[in-house]
Amino acid sequence: MRKVEMKLVYARQIAEDTIEMKLEDNYITQIAEPGQFIYIALPNFTLRRPISIADVDREQKQLTILFKIFGRGTASFAAYEPGMIVDCIGPNGNGFPFDTDKMEKVLLIGGGIGVPPLYYLGKKLKSKGIEVTSILGYQTAAQVFYEEEFNQLGETIVVTDDGSYGEKGYVTDIITDSFNFDLYYSCGPTGMLRALTSKLQDKKGYISLEERMGCGVGACAACVVSTKNEQGYLKICHDGPVFPAKEVIL
């Protein structure tokens, strides 16, 4: 984890309020693992913004991020143009653990802007011969992104809350007993993760959490999550953002 300057080399809007960017540097791109995040500073905003890493191309020294415009900070970042320098700390946190000797089939479940970190994970797993199935949930058709990218990894089911695209309902409605997998990985809104971890309580899985962060490096104790063991709170930025699904209380 270092503070570096990344160069914005590419930016486009890929869905409603959703921006995809590629950033270039010699350090973060060489060591980043699926599930880690970068922590970006924006001029005239006090706090940095955590953004998960959606893909990495080590040879091109580029990483891909996706983010949703939620407020003034993300709106100002969306207005950045290629060639501009982005002040980043990264890679932060711990990624999704995997042991490819002990798994054959995995299920990826993403909700909205929680979908991106699962893409880099899915790519890595597929390259190691793991069978990947993905369920991607969005609010509505206009917000759907990366369907084609996930199709390249394996069977992909898109679901929208209002049924305007793909299946209608929530990601948890789609998962039935017919799904056969050794392990699941998920990232999305807390409500979705709560429903999902409850439904899949007999399965082993890892979830990636989001919270408003202060320092982003583990010092300030702003972004904490309760745990089921005796350790009390864990720090999402430092001990996570990925946790075993059975370890945390959502």
Partner: peptide, 25 residues
């Protein structure tokens, strides 16, 4: 003795600053 602190969110950005309520964790 150990303090667990407040529930989250514990921080929020403001104009030229931030609010925090960590709660002495």
């Amino acid at each position: 003795t150990e303090r667990l602190g407040n529930p989250t969110p514990r921080v929020a950005e403001t104009s030229s600053g931030m609010l925090n309520a960590i709660g002495l964790q």
